[in-house]
Design a binder for these strands. Structure first.
Lengths: 236, 236
DNA sequence: ATAATCAAAAATCTCGAGAAAAACTGTTGA
DNA sequence: TCAACAGTTTTTCTCGAGATTTTTGATTAT
């Protein structure tokens, strides 16, 4: 059992950045997901190149990479801006995630070996611990919970052999994370999330793929309701 | 009935290029799909900038855009190369396409209005005409058939409201086109492709989504077999 | 007061040169 | 004969300045 997350993404992700452009790309992505740069905000190269301490051309490259993730939109000859958000978009993201992630889970359950099972159990354990700390109200634990939540979902579908599904799923996860940050801010994690995760693990290890995908669907769709109950001016 | 193909893609596609980088991007994409640049081939910026008549930085941007479509892979600090191809990859692409396209078709059949029906019929007619010309053996008609085949598949799912599914489907279509070019070269279009398209149209207009998705699945998966029967050294 | 027009300002896009890294080649030693 | 090493060459990556385009602000006429 070496590394839990073996992110074999199409655009290599796990390693450390080997170029300035990629370093800037990661910082920018993080800032956009965390809301430092607001949805719809214009991203002026001249300003940002100082802030991220790279040349203009390099920052342009970083922005171009973010277009790949659809976190930034490029408008012809009118520069870049942060991708806008909307309820419709989030609903679309969520439903598409369900489609991809259930299919991936189904294949994972079908093909996963002992190591996969062990990884699932381990990731679930890590996540549970993070939830305990979160309930205690310790500081800075939300970040850790986010990381482990993501790791858990990634490990669940890690035995799915389709690199394309995992690639798309990865993009959508980044997208939905942006929305989830908004909803989590107001509404702390409800207690039954843990029970849902537990149920998914149980069904997965029992190789009951119908049950597992059903629970996973409801689990993902629940975040949609959470965002829907936000005050309307959050998403405009 | 204005324009048949209203490509409302995430990365705007239909319009004409408004920047040199985008123009170079399109030419490069076309050349890669058509096999001018072979799979795995190294793409040296110094050579290509002369060939496509743009500056080095501009060409780099175009290459970065192609990474989005996964037609080009960027390797840390060792430049770019054309994405390699393999049978496994094509199988993955095809299966993922089935997953996305059947889901999209299902929603299209559920939500499509009269205009959608009309567009489907029209696109099918255009495609049929192209097939006639293809059988006659006129020159340069393969290009036209490709375009209309693509338009047909696009129109079929055009009533699907999910921009994300259409976005991913678009990427995968570009990918599979590269493989299909190889197989079509040897094996001209079999006659029953037309019958399959006809069956899809009939089922779609009859709002029989189970039947339509079933035929569409088989239709897409058939290209997989076609490539599988190629001599092995085509894909290495 | 509103709308249209035109000029100034800001931002984007593009390019070529310099610095850093990787690949290649010929040589040396076992 | 093969492997390792060092210098050379090639290629990539980065940066800042110039050319175009878009946006802003003020002026004028209706």
């Amino acid at each position: 059992m070496n590394d839990l997350v073996s992110s074999t993404d199409l655009a290599s992700e796990a390693d450390e950045p080997k170029t300035l452009a990629e370093a800037a790309y990661r910082q920018l992505r993080r800032d956009i997901i965390e809301g430092v740069h607001r949805p719809g905000e214009k991203l002026r190269v001249e300003h940002l190149k100082d802030q991220y301490e790279v040349g203009a051309g390099t920052l342009r490259e970083a922005l171009q990479l973010l277009v790949t993730d659809a976190l930034v939109v490029a408008q012809g000859q009118r520069g870049f801006r942060v991708a806008p958000i909307s309820l419709d978009d989030f609903a679309d993201i969520t439903r598409t995630r369900v489609l991809l992630e259930t299919s991936a889970l189904q294949q994972s359950i079908e093909l996963g070996d002992d190591t996969w099972e062990a990884n699932v159990v381990a990731a679930f354990h890590m996540l549970s611990r993070a939830e305990d700390k979160l309930i205690e109200g310790a500081k800075g634990t939300r970040e850790e919970w986010e990381l482990r939540n993501r790791a858990f979902h990634e490990v669940l579908i890690s035995a799915c052999p389709s690199r394309w599904i995992r690639h798309f799923q990865n993009i959508l996860y980044h997208q939905s994370e942006r929305y989830r940050r908004l909803s989590l801010f107001r509404q702390p994690i409800p207690r039954d999330v843990h029970a849902e995760h537990q149920a998914i693990v149980d069904a997965a290890l029992a190789r009951n793929s119908a049950e597992a995908t059903r629970i996973l669907s409801e689990h993902i769709l629940r975040t949609l309701d959470a965002v829907r109950q936000l005050p309307a001016d959050f998403i405009n």
